[in-house]
């Protein structure tokens, strides 16, 4: 009963929503910088609600990739959500009906999952509905403001902000790599493969979406084979 309070969920979602606003702002900027109309990044954010997948999708769209390419890029990059949804399904209590799961699944992001998983015991329907409000709002509003800002941005500032998303990606992967040598290996392997596929003339014509998929599969399979996780590491 303690974990089934809408207001409590709403409150727990505020810091996630604030964080999402700034990331989504960068997404909106990046989309407009690639020449997409203002409405499109907002629609992407409101229908996808995922960061890495959306940025990868932008790259495929900008390169005029095929629909198969964009579908595969989303499948590979967002595959991790399958594990989170699987784990969350064990965490929901009896107040969550089947139809509620259709809504919860829509906004089951890394951070929403992390907060829900961190609650002691099971979580209920009202708590989950409260929890997803602010992250969704922050994600949608951040994208709109970023896209609108991008429309008036001078070229010098747009160029400088072009590096922002990559700075953000580094800020996500570097800190955990300091503690874990296997993660360092995964990153270096993925980077080396990505440069190889991008620069070797043999692979010219391979879309950037496919390059990311190939690098991800090879690096993550190699790491899973060489550095299988111990039980405790899954809780990180």
């Amino acid at each position: 009963m303690i974990n089934n309070n809408f207001t409590k969920g709403l409150h727990d979602g505020v810091p996630i929503g604030l964080g999402y606003f700034s990331v989504a702002f960068t997404f909106g900027l990046a989309a407009v910088a690639l020449g997409l109309p203002l409405w499109s990044p907002v629609l992407i954010s409101m229908s996808n609600v995922t960061s890495a997948g959306q940025f990868a999708g932008l790259q495929v769209i900008a390169a005029c990739g095929s629909l198969l390419e964009i579908a595969l890029s989303q499948l590979i990059i967002n595959m991790r959500y399958a594990l989170m949804s699987l784990s969350l399904s064990q965490k929901l209590d009896a107040t969550v009906r089947l139809c509620d799961r259709f809504l919860i699944a829509f906004v089951n992001t890394d951070e929403v999952f992390a907060v829900a998983a961190g609650r002691p015991g099971e979580v209920g329907r009202a708590y989950m509905f409260g929890l997803i409000c602010m992250p969704y709002l922050g994600w949608a509003a951040g994208t709109l403001f970023g896209a609108a800002a991008g429309d008036f941005l001078p070229a010098s500032l747009a160029s400088a902000l072009g590096i922002a998303i990559y700075g953000m990606f580094l800020a996500i992967i570097i800190p955990p790599a300091k503690q874990n040598r296997a993660i360092v290996v995964v990153i270096l392997l993925a980077v080396a493969l990505s440069c190889l596929l991008q620069w070797l003339p043999v692979f010219v014509g391979l879309g950037s979406g496919f390059i990311i998929i190939i690098c991800t599969l090879l690096a993550a399979v190699f790491a899973a084979w060489r550095f299988p996780l111990k039980e405790a590491e899954f809780d990180e």
Binding site: I76, I172, S194, A219, A223, F234
Partner: peptide
Amino acid sequence: RSFLYYVPYAVLGAMTVPAI
């Protein structure tokens, strides 16, 4: 499970370099 754990790092690494 190990594969899924490493996926985000591989994805973000490959997306960052050389595109940056």
